[in-house]
Design a protein around this nucleic acid. Sequence first.
DNA 1: AAATTAAGTTCTATTTTGGAACTCATTATC
DNA 2: GATAATGAGTTCCAAAATAGAACTTAATTT
Lengths: 178, 178
Amino acid sequence: MKWHDLNNDTCPLARAMGAIGDRWTLLILRECFLGVRRFDGFQKRLGVTRHLLAERLKRLETMRMLERRPYQERPLRHEYRLTASGKSFAPVLLAMQDWAQQCLPSDDPAPFTFITRDSGAEVCPVVTDRHTGQELNHRTVLMVPATAAAAKVIEAHRSAPTPALQADSSADTTTGTG
Amino acid sequence: MKWHDLNNDTCPLARAMGAIGDRWTLLILRECFLGVRRFDGFQKRLGVTRHLLAERLKRLETMRMLERRPYQERPLRHEYRLTASGKSFAPVLLAMQDWAQQCLPSDDPAPFTFITRDSGAEVCPVVTDRHTGQELNHRTVLMVPATAAAAKVIEAHRSAPTPALQADSSADTTTGTG
DNA sequence: AAATTAAGTTCTATTTTGGAACTCATTATC
DNA sequence: GATAATGAGTTCCAAAATAGAACTTAATTT
């Protein structure tokens, strides 16, 4: 399998890794959230080679996470700004920072934090269910093949045992729309 | 900068990319959450080369996200299981899957979903603040250098304007006003 | 005895990345 | 008016990582 192929994978997580599955892309996004917009700003702060930076910025633009827009003419210069897609990556950064601080600890304090825009208080991120408010983690949530999920829903509707769940979970791609 | 150096970066997000900033590691974790435990299980489902898979599993073990434990003797065979650290990565997967489904859409439906263990209902993940319940996203949250965050806290305590915030933000990181 | 299963390891070829120097248009400095 | 300096890249080569396939080892099944 090749790098590029991930972008067309049916699994959203695989596509996410097609987008940010390298050493630099997520760090470029981090800098965007910190307010950096220009090529040399990214380059100096990250220490990434200009070569790769140019390539990664181009990719982020292709993926519509960043947009390149002129900030001056004569000579023409562009800056990079987060698009709506780019901005909506913020919750992933929050979850990831929280996880890394707990599970990949460091002697040094984090150089950045997230604060609320209204109160300025440091946030304490937790993933919850939008509808029930329940905290979502490994204890409360199960990851299942889509077919099994559909079967679960059917089961819940009928409130009677269906053989669908135990049926055949041996094959690797049983994509059936329930 | 080298691959390995990220693991000791002071930034948690950089360390996170040291952990999962490649094409395969996160997909291996995905398979773990789906119940896969054995070398050949990962290999067949992901299509990753055995060489890389062995290397990545070793790394995940070193990072204490997976643990290798014997499941039979004669011949001795091991399986890989999520540790507490590995399990606590679940919220990141939830946030990432949600983001990718919205921002990297596909013609095909996702092959996996997350359901609650109690009701079996599909979850709708949203990152919130543990204390206030407020939804955390680009509109409600600001990413700031740790010093600026400290200044904000001091400011909030005194409820009087301090020069600390405007002090040395002359670089290209113009931490926005309000 | 030969094939199969399971979990790797070893080898070479290809792709990606790192590091440095170079370009090009304009503006600032001597 | 020549000489930096700035900003955003591009080009080139060396080093590292990844892909693909074959090989190993120990036991089990046919």
